[in-house]
């Protein structure tokens, strides 16, 4: 069987592998970016008293993000099985879960600011909002991507042999999930 050829004159499979490798390089750069901020956060925690966090709310947020990652891998499995309805449904639910995560993060910020933790109240506040806000911004971009792919899925853009758009979006979304797993433990539980 003749392999599909992309617009750049290389096989579709080769193109997909290069795209995935590029995304892994991007994720590697993000690891270092988050590491620098997490390092300063750990330092701030050792110097300042941590505020009283709303752990039930944050646990719910953790669960929402884990569930959204689950929906994204189910979306990938669905497109590989050729199930367009399940694909669109999973992407929509994942987008809703991401949106809820951001909403609850705003609720958390509001609570903390009422308890005196603001961006300018201390070094702890500055680092806390910078780190969690930077992660939240990544979630926001991920939600836009999820809903973008949802609308593309409705138009039948993805097929079992054309699922790379879902796969690389998944890489990004799961990385955002991994960062939250680390933040949830290091900032809120320790």
């Amino acid at each position: 069987m003749e392999a599909a050829v992309s617009a750049h004159g290389i096989s579709a499979e080769k193109h997909n592998e290069m795209l995935k490798f590029g995304w892994w390089l991007y994720i590697a750069s993000e690891v270092m970016l988050f590491a620098s901020m997490i390092g300063v956060m750990v330092l701030a925690k050792s110097k300042y008293e941590s505020p009283e966090y709303n752990i039930p709310l944050l646990s719910l947020n953790t669960f929402l993000l884990l569930m959204s990652s689950w929906m994204v891998v189910r979306a990938l499995a669905s497109v590989q099985e050729g199930d367009q309805v399940a694909l669109a449904r999973a992407l929509f639910i994942a987008g809703l879960l991401g949106t809820t995560f951001i909403t609850l993060q705003i609720v958390e910020y509001t609570e903390l600011s009422h308890h005196g933790l603001t961006l300018t109240s201390s070094m702890y506040g500055s680092v806390f909002y910078m780190l969690t806000g930077f992660h939240g911004f990544h979630v926001f971009l991920g939600v836009l991507w999820l809903f973008g792919n949802f609308f593309r899925a409705l138009k039948g853009h993805f097929t079992p042999d054309k699922a790379i758009g879902i796969e690389v979006m998944g890489l990004y979304w799961h990385f955002v999930d991994v960062v939250w797993i680390v933040l949830f433990t290091l900032i809120y539980l320790m």
């Binding site: 590697a28 270092m32 750990v42 330092l43 050792s46």
Partner: peptide, 23 residues
Amino acid sequence: YTWVFVVPIIMAVAVILSLQGLA
């Protein structure tokens, strides 16, 4: 792919521990 991901994580842990050491 695993190496592309794991190597920066090792460096990241080193950065975080170094920051604690410097402080």
